[in-house]
Nucleic acid binder design. Structure first.
Length: 831
RNA sequence: GCCCGGGUGGCGGAACGGUAGACGCGGCUGACUUAAAAUCGGCUGUCCUACGGGCAUGUGGGUUCGAAUCCCACCCCGGGCACCA
């Protein structure tokens, strides 16, 4: 039989990858305990997937990014928590059930199995002992407990309100789930309905959600999106009293109390509760009724189109402007929104675009009260007050604003006020596949929370999953009919389920203590890991999930269950992978499936390519050729390692002299020195690219450079130097291509790279004896000369002046200035 | 309209205010091979009168010895918010 050592080496990821995965699974390499740890701990968390079908390329990207970070931290001696779970309640599984009759529990379980299989095939370093699924009663029992805690604190409440209704999904939606007047799931036009619904009081946390953004290390654009969503406005609440009955007053919120003297009419939203009352018996009663009915029936997105001509109807009554006693007419108009401020406004057509447009249509008076602009109204900028009152005329409007608020407050006509765009989070869903809301309704006791020791309220099986305007659970009569926990009398269960964003608003806490059946978590376990050191996920969650999880954390902290205010200390949002410049979709036929890709090239190639393609926070376009390039690189690395190991296998007698340990030669020179230096340069480069940055693309490029040098110096460098350089390359590529790196490192050294500390660059080897001195004349590159490292400014200047091409460019000219950047360049300024 | 990002070779992308284009792809070319694949090397921004030089980082200005990088104005692309008073 031929000596296998002399056969050509073939890089075979299909053999290498499962072999090491088996070791990691067998030894439970990535599991961590909650026992106290002396060193540093890191919680590296990737947003949990919604299990639907098979994982796609976006999943591969996000878990590859998370895994690279987790591995890097581990190799630096930290204990790393890197868990996995499934956001398993939700509409797609339920819609699938409606179409096929397969229970969502079964299709979800099948999909979870597929995800789990893929994650193992991808070699992601997950602590599988902490795996969870949000549809598991052992999990949602505590989702229900949190609901009850919020209820106890008055942060969960029920109210009859105008809500966003999706006619296709037949359920209500949170404000955040309505995009351009459409359902963010199915795209159908959202209607308004009046319904009794559960809400969480996110508005109580508006200011803290805003303030604490300053305490977390998140991308600025994500913070900006959250700030805009919270939408804080400073201004005043001003009371306008009825002309007919001074006891009745209507509050308005305004950011421009400085323009109060320019208010020439008053407008209420069609939904304002007093509109019809005020119009009753007036000259426009019928007209007002028709207008209000039409406004209510109009679709949301039609209502909210800003370019639409302004419409409205006068109510035939007046209110008194509190600053000057002027009676001004009340109108109803749909450009005023019931959902913001008080649902009524003072209209200042001289200094507000919308009020101006309205006044123009109906011929209402337009008055200038702020000086400035090009003379045309409306003018919305700053200036001095005019036509207002002797006390304020002539003042800069910002100063007048403060004084007018003070005056209003002194006279009991208004006060300083802050308004937020943020609304309370509507969590009721009239759907089946979600967490049941744990309350019952008793004829005698009213609304009764299910006692904590009776949780979970188990989601029952039903025959018909289809929504019919009420929750499918309502049809489960045996389940709905229950007894009151308080009086023991007959009672009925709440049949709405919770928005799935509730489930995912606390899963990161459960990972810390996933098997606890006494409590949602042990505070010690949570404090062991939380807050998450690095959270990783898609930008599409910039508002919804990330806002809700922050709200939960703050509310639970206030209730004494948590010791911190923010769940995610740092956030990284990865970009999308496109193909041919477009989002991948089945209809476009441009989908890259991880399965076949991994079968063909191995997962390391796919992982390293995804990270090499560009900065991971940006969108990147897929290229099959680019993938091939990375595959060639990994093959080259592995083959060089196999050949080098072959020349002196680990364990052979006398290999110590050949550097079988992977240690560098003690006193390298010539090609050895060049190679050892390059290895240290790569250590330094990769470490900097990983540490606090996410520059995986340039880190991989640095290892490519090192491998290129190994290849180039193959004949001239010694065994130990080559072995050291290759072992270093394998060690550095490990976070990105863990299987190939592990195998190559093992061939070279007989050791396991994941148990090795992250290499440290030797500063002495980062320096060279000489450097290339850049010689510029007038800022333009004219020559390059060899200069000794550490040369003085004068020496460098002399070297530059002597450079032949510099001579040619300064001949016959006067040198007026010499700029020397030591270790870098000399720039000669001539006249 | 307002608020964020971003415009660099044929392509993806590099570049503490200091050699623009690292690394990879593609292309051209050589070695090996009966041949192909695989593999290993070389060249590759552009133009010119080519051992040198001009022009080049969306456009136009500015700051600086020196600008892809900083400042001002504008254009284009992507994203978010939008009748929010």
């Amino acid at each position: 039989m031929a000596d296998h050592r002399h056969e050509p080496h073939r890089y075979d990821p299909q053999e290498i990858e499962p072999r090491w995965q088996a070791v990691w699974a067998e030894e439970k390499t990535w599991e961590v305990t909650n026992e106290p740890f002396d060193g540093k701990s890191s919680y590296i968390l990737v947003m949990l997937p919604y299990p639907s079908g098979e994982p796609h390329i976006g999943h591969l990207k996000v878990y590859t990014v998370g895994d690279a970070i987790a591995h890097f931290h581990r190799r630096r001696g930290e204990q790393v928590l890197n868990p996995m779970g499934y956001d398993a309640f939700g509409l797609p599984a339920e819609n699938h059930a409606i179409a096929t009759g397969v229970h969502p529990r079964d299709s979800t379980a099948a999909s979870i199995a597929a995800f789990r299989r893929q994650f193992r095939r991808w070699g992601v370093s997950i602590d599988w002992s902490r795996e969870l699924a949000t549809n598991d009663p052992a999990y949602y029992r505590w989702t229900q407990w949190i609901f009850l805690e919020l209820l106890r604190a008055g942060l969960a409440y029920k109210k009859n309100a105008a809500v966003n209704w999706c006619p296709v999904d037949a359920t209500v939606l949170a404000n955040e789930q309505v995009i351009d007047g459409r359902c963010d799931r199915c795209g159908s036009e959202v209607e308004t309905r009046q319904l009794e619904q559960w809400l969480f009081k996110t508005t109580a946390y508006a200011q803290r959600l805003l303030d604490d953004l300053d305490t977390i290390d998140w991308p600025e654009h994500v913070k900006t999106m959250q700030r805009n969503w919270i939408g804080r406005s400073e201004g005043a609440l001003v009371t306008f009293r009825s002309e007919d009955d001074p006891a009745v007053g209507y509050d308005v919120f305004t950011t421009r109390p400085d323009t109060l003297f320019g208010a020439t009419f008053f407008v209420m939203a069609p939904e304002h509760p007093d509109v019809l009352k005020l119009a009753d018996g007036g000259p426009h009663e019928a007209e007002v009724r028709a207008y209000v009915d039409a406004a209510r029936a109009a679709p949301n997105d039609e209502r909210s189109a800003a370019e639409r001509p302004k419409t409205g109807v006068p109510l035939g009554r007046n209110v008194i402007n509190p600053v000057n006693g002027e009676p001004i007419p009340i109108w109803v108009a749909d450009y005023v929104l019931i959902s913001y401020g008080t649902g009524a406004i003072m209209a200042v057509p001289g200094h507000d675009d919308r009020d101006h447009a309205f006044a123009t249509v109906y011929g209402l008076p337009i008055r200038r009260v702020i000086d400035g602009g090009d003379g045309d109204l409306p003018y919305t900028g700053d200036g001095r007050l005019v036509n207002s009152h002797a006390d304020f005329d002539g003042l800069p409007n910002r100063e007048a604003l403060t004084r007018i608020i003070a005056w209003l407050a002194e006279n009991g006509r208004g006060e300083r006020s802050i308004n937020y765009r943020l609304r309370d989070w509507l969590v009721s869903r009239q759907r089946y596949w979600g967490c049941p809301i744990p309350v019952v309704y008793c004829d005698g006791c009213g609304l009764v929370p299910v006692p904590a020791d009776q949780l979970p309220v188990i989601l029952p099986d039903v025959e018909d999953y289809a929504p019919h305007g009420r929750s499918p659970l309502a049809a489960a009569e045996d389940w709905v009919a229950t007894t009151c926990p308080t009086c023991g009398g007959p009672a009925r269960r709440e049949t709405d389920t919770m928005d799935t964003f509730v489930d995912s608003s606390w899963y990161f806490l459960r990972y810390c203590d996933p098997h606890n059946d006494e409590a949602a978590w042990d505070p010690a376990a949570v404090n062991r890991w939380m807050p998450v050191d690095q959270y990783i996920g898609g930008i599409e969650h910039a508002i919804l999930h990330l806002m809700y999880a922050r709200f939960f954390t703050k509310a639970l902290a206030d209730l004494g269950h948590l010791d911190f205010q923010e769940p995610f200390a740092a956030l990284f949002t990865q970009g999308m992978i496109t193909r041919d410049g477009a989002k991948m979709s089945k209809s476009k036929g441009n989908v890259v499936s991880p399965g076949p890709l991994v079968d063909r090239y191995g997962v390391d190639t796919a992982r390293a390519y995804i990270l090499f393609i560009g900065p991971p926070d940006q969108d990147a376009d897929w290229s099959d050729e680019g993938l091939e390039g990375v595959h060639r690189f990994l093959g080259r690395l592995w083959r060089l390692a196999a050949e080098t190991a072959d020349a002196a296998p680990v364990g052979d007698s006398g290999t110590a002299a050949l550097g079988a340990t992977g240690d560098p030669p003690s006193d390298p020179a010539g090609a050895d020195l060049e190679l050892v230096r390059k290895a240290h340069w790569a250590i330094d480069k990769v470490t900097h690219d990983m540490d606090g940055r996410f520059a995986f693309n340039t880190a991989i490029a640095a290892v490519m450079e090192l491998i290129n040098d190994c290849s180039r110096l193959r004949e001239s460098a010694s065994g130990p130097a080559m072995r050291f350089a290759l072992a270093t390359a394998a060690s550095l590529i490990f976070p990105f291509a863990p299987h190939t790196a592990t195998d190559a490192f093992h061939l070279l050294t007989g050791r396991r790279v994941w148990e090795e500390p992250w290499p440290v660059a030797d500063p002495k080897l980062l320096e060279t004896d000489t450097f290339e001195l850049v010689c510029q004349v007038m800022g333009k590159l004219r020559d390059r000369v060899e200069a000794p490292t550490g040369a003085s400014r004068d020496e460098l200047e002399a070297l530059a002046l002597a450079a032949p091409n510099v001579q040619a460019h300064i001949a016959g000219r006067e040198i007026v200035k010499v700029v020397v950047v030591p270790g870098k360049l000399v720039n000669l300024v001539v006249r």
